[in-house]
Nucleic acid binder design. Structure first.
Lengths: 224, 224, 224, 224
DNA sequence: GATGAATGAGGATTCATTCAT
DNA sequence: TATGAATGAATCCTCATTCAT
């Protein structure tokens, strides 16, 4: 039965010259989305090492052969998933890390940055699984590094904007620490629900506020 | 001291004056130590799920059968390892979390508590691996929980000693957050060496000082 | 009671001149008895193939090494057990198959023969397990054959005594069938308890009576 | 009507327009047959406990992985085999136990019932192995019970038809005994060949005739 | 003689991956 | 392209047997 193409994927579409050969690809895109969704679900349940490609295929409702038509191996699935999450982040919450937030007072900035980040993680729990990735083999780490690094860079930028004069290595340490703080707090946030989760969100913001305030707050950029 | 753990025998046991249970314990005890050391090493490299019992046996220089003479299954190895680490901690650094530290000024207290904790983790990197344990099966979590819980309790005690009037749930959240902060910072510490590691240790203490100071500092113990 | 030596194999026993050095052997005899008892128990639970020598040693309360000091391998344990059972039978119930029963009326003879046989089996359930031995490797079959054959021979003798004129091959078939009938009925007997067991014993005797009566019953040997 | 047996799909394909469930069944079905045949052969040689799944796979000329694509574990192979045998019996010899035989004179009835049963066992020696199944784990016993029970029920029916007035428990005992007699005789039949086998078949019928004749024969249903 | 340790091949089962249709 | 079959090495674990003390 002839399928109609391109139902959903690839939100940033700038079809320059090619949208002819896409016809055939449409189904493929959907398959990939299916598979990545299944992978996210399985990774969340069992971690990367514990996930079997057969289990992912089954969860996606396809045969193992089909999975391997789109991903050359298990690693590529994780990489593909992190790519997708990164892109999803960029298009849906990405502006949270945008430069304009730099000028807000620290507490407002933390709200502006953390709330979308937390929301994103709540919506995409696989993100956290891949980030922590304590058992993922080499190449994935790098790819994860991209994702990790993207956030890291943003954090560093934010710091640099407010504290332009500091030494680079200290700035890097602060960025790293800030990111780790966030990941730690996020774990706690994810581990609770409802009011308790809210309380942990507040607590996380408190941690970060107190940590960053002496550096960024005061008369800093957003000060006055 | 006579220890009998998992294996099986010793059906009729009435220890008058002797230690029948385990006669040939010398070699066995050494093997167990060897195996746990090997397990620590392999777990660090590959995580729990990724570790194969054959790899652990090989690392320990024994046959798979020998491993299974001392541990009934893979889980038991991790449990045994966490037990050993817990005991090792208790005997060698345990006093770090002791009550007397409660009366120190916050910054001194952080030194007193964190330095041994960090030192222990540096010496026993498997500790961190088991703690994070994102993919470990049920029973280990509980055992790890013991370990985790032991620290958590200490942290809560410390907080309660300084802040006796606060609501219990907030205190619990603070304890949890403190522990997570530590784990997060520790990751960074472990990921670096030499001067950089020192810098991260300082940074971690800064984070914790700033987080806890408003709650515990002031006039409390250390006024500042 | 003077013990006969026979440390392990040597199915063909010809005690020349030695029975002095037996003093030291006493403990060994007890060990062997212990081990065979344990083996009987384990074989009953799991069958020969399913039984592990370690399990037998454990059941006997000794170490695997000790077991192998008395039996060169697993097969030898089964062989030793069947030897022991055979001997036990010979000394305690053996007269059941004795020649004098030959002259009894068939129903009385069946009582005289079957009751001890059943009693023996009830007391030594391992006997049945080894007899059926559906999964026992080659050599055991032969040894079992001895045991099996011993009974078979008796049965044949009984038949021959009553039916001296028949063709040998038919007599052999009748003996085989009689034995199999008994084993079949015994299974049913063993599978029940109390009154039901009694009923099956009666039923078994009925079977055998009806089968053998035309051959052996009536007045003298050759009925009709 | 659509039948699905153990795997899950339907080998007999006559559904209107869709055959989604299992497309690539041809090869698979053949493999299953191959594997069951191999399993029958190996079970006959070594019994259930002694059979290794690798040996079965090897006998079938496939890799272990392939075996596990069709059977989740060793038990399932035995269950699948008994299912297949049961079905094979039902379709090829099943009418032997049909009700109409009830009205034949006992000797004719025994021929009508036993000959197909014996023929079936000769053709499918694994049947006997599974039936005796002295070492098979729990679930198989149940499945075997089905098989066993199917025959038992038939036997009971036959007896009930001829002897409607008897007490139920005695009828059950007679059925059990009859079945056991058959199994015992069958062992003898299977253990011989040619003329000797024929002689044992006759002997078996004699046993059963003499056992059942007083109950069923005479003026019984089909008597005279 | 007894023990517990040691062995290593083998057993059931899984899994990432490839192949034929 | 999609499927399910096929693979075989690897996994966890067991077991008969031997060794050192």
């Amino acid at each position: 039965m002839p399928e109609n193409q391109q139902t959903e994927e690839s939100p940033t579409r700038r079809e320059r010259t090619e949208d002819r050969p896409r016809r055939r690809q449409a189904r493929g895109e959907r398959r990939i989305a299916q598979l990545l969704e299944a992978a996210a679900s399985v990774f969340c349940r069992t971690g990367y090492t514990g996930a079997s490609t057969n289990a992912i295929a089954r969860e996606a409702g396809v045969s193992p052969g089909t999975l391997y038509q789109f991903f050359p191996n298990k690693e590529a699935i994780a990489v593909g998933l992190s790519d997708q999450l990164l892109e999803h982040w960029a298009t849906s919450h990405g502006q949270a890390l945008a430069a304009e937030n730099t000028s807000l007072p620290l507490d407002r900035m933390l709200d502006a940055v953390l709330d979308p980040l937390i929301a994103f993680n709540v919506e995409n729990p696989a993100f956290g699984v891949l980030m922590h990735a304590p058992d993922t083999p080499g190449r994935i780490i790098e790819e994860i590094g991209t994702l990790h690094g993207a956030i890291l860079t943003r954090v560093e930028d934010l710091i640099a904007a407010r504290l332009p004069g500091g030494p680079a290595d200290q700035r890097e340490r602060t960025a790293n620490m800030t990111l780790m703080l966030f990941k730690a707090g996020l774990t706690l946030v994810m581990a609770h629900e409802g009011a308790e989760r809210q309380a942990y969100i507040t607590e996380l913001k408190t941690v970060m506020y107190r940590y960053l305030e002496p550096l960024l707050g005061e008369d800093g950029a957003g000060g006055h």
